[in-house]
């Protein structure tokens, strides 16, 4: 899973995981990389290629997200993806 969503609060991270799994998407909660968001401890890994389905799904369920990021190994870290 090469996509990562950061959140303002873990409440929304857990809800995001529940919503995505319920709709058949791969999702896994991980410790949030500090360089991305200081807001809460957890972030959600997902399939970046499916972001056009995933992000509207979260919006419909009123899950608040902080940012969406893509992992690109060559740049040695996470990069913010255009929303």
């Amino acid at each position: 899973m090469d996509g990562l969503i950061s959140f303002f609060a873990s409440h929304h991270a857990i809800r995001a995981e529940t919503v995505l799994k319920r709709h058949g998407h791969a999702a896994r909660l991980v410790p949030g990389p500090r360089e991305l968001s200081p807001n809460c401890g957890v972030a959600l890994r997902f399939e970046f290629a499916r972001r056009d389905e995933v992000l509207p799904l979260l919006a419909i369920h009123r899950v608040r997200i902080d940012g969406v990021h893509e992992y690109r190994p060559r740049t040695d870290g996470w990069e913010a993806a255009p929303r």
Binding site: S10, I14, V30, G41, V42
Partner: peptide, 18 residues
Amino acid sequence: NPGRSGHRLSIAAARVVE
């Protein structure tokens, strides 16, 4: 402790709350 750390027991507790 729910929502305070990113480790598995923190996530498990947060999941219980949610």
